[in-house]
Lab assay of single mutants.
Amino acid sequence: VDNKFNKEQQNAFYEILHLPNLNEEQRNAFIQSLKDDPSQSANLLAEAKKLNDAQA
Rank of each mutant, 00 (worst) to 15 (best):
N6K: 00
A56M: 14
L45I: 05
Q32F: 07
N3V: 05
N52I: 02
A48V: 04
K4F: 07
Q32S: 05
N11Y: 14
N11M: 13
V1P: 13
Q32K: 06
N11R: 11
N3I: 05
Q9P: 03
P20V: 05
E25N: 15
Q26V: 03
Q55N: 13
E25G: 10
Q9G: 02
N6Q: 01
L45A: 07
D2L: 04
K7A: 13
N21S: 10
L19K: 01
Y14F: 11
H18Y: 07
A46F: 12
A56V: 07
R27G: 01
K50P: 01
S33H: 15
V1Y: 03
E47S: 04
K35C: 06
N43F: 10
E25W: 05
N28D: 11
L44R: 08
L51C: 06
N52V: 03
S33Q: 12
Q40A: 07
L51R: 05
A12C: 09
S41L: 08
N43R: 09
K7V: 08
Q40R: 15
K49R: 03
Q32V: 12
F13D: 01
P20L: 08
D37R: 08
D36N: 11
L51D: 05
E8A: 01
N28H: 12
A12S: 05
K35V: 12
R27Y: 02
S39N: 10
S39H: 15
N28W: 07
F30E: 00
V1H: 13
L45G: 02
A56C: 13
Y14E: 12
L19F: 09
Q9R: 01
D36W: 13
E24V: 10
Q10G: 05
K7G: 08
Q26K: 08
S33P: 02
N23M: 15
L45N: 02
L44W: 10
D53V: 03
D2Y: 02
F13S: 03
H18F: 10
N23T: 14
E24T: 03
L45Q: 06
K50M: 12
N3G: 06
K4Y: 13
E15I: 12
L17M: 11
R27N: 02
I31F: 04
A54I: 15
A29F: 14
S39F: 10
K50V: 06
L22W: 00
Q40G: 07
Q10D: 10
Q40E: 13
L22I: 12
K4D: 14
I16C: 01
Q10E: 11
R27Q: 09
N43T: 08
K49C: 08
D2E: 04
I16S: 01
E24L: 08
A42Y: 07
L34M: 05
F13H: 11
L34G: 02
F5E: 09
L51H: 15
K50H: 05
P20Q: 06
K35D: 05
N23V: 08
L17G: 06
E24M: 09
D37G: 09
H18T: 13
S41A: 10
N11V: 11
S33T: 14
L17I: 05
L17R: 04
A12P: 02
N52G: 03
Q32Y: 08
P20E: 15
A56G: 15
A42K: 07
A54G: 13
N52A: 05
L19G: 00
N23I: 15
Y14G: 03
E47W: 11
Q10P: 02
Q10H: 04
A54W: 14
Q26D: 06
S33M: 10
A12R: 04
V1K: 10
D2G: 13
N28K: 11
Q26S: 04
F13Y: 14
E8N: 02
N6Y: 02
K7Q: 13
L22N: 00
L45H: 02
N3W: 01
N43M: 12
D2F: 02
A12T: 05
L22S: 00
L34A: 04
Y14Q: 10
N43A: 09
Q26P: 00
N6I: 01
F30S: 02
V1L: 14
F13R: 09
A54D: 15
D37L: 12
L44G: 01
I31E: 05
Q40V: 04
L34R: 00
F30R: 00
L19T: 01
D53H: 11
I16P: 00
A46T: 14
N43E: 05
S41F: 15
I31Y: 08
L22C: 00
A48S: 09
R27T: 10
N23W: 11
R27K: 07
L19W: 01
L34H: 00
P38R: 04
N11I: 14
L19E: 00
Q10V: 03
Q55G: 15
V1F: 02
A48Q: 00
P20C: 09
S33I: 08
E15Y: 10
S41V: 11
A46H: 13
A46E: 12
N3T: 06
A56T: 15
L34W: 06
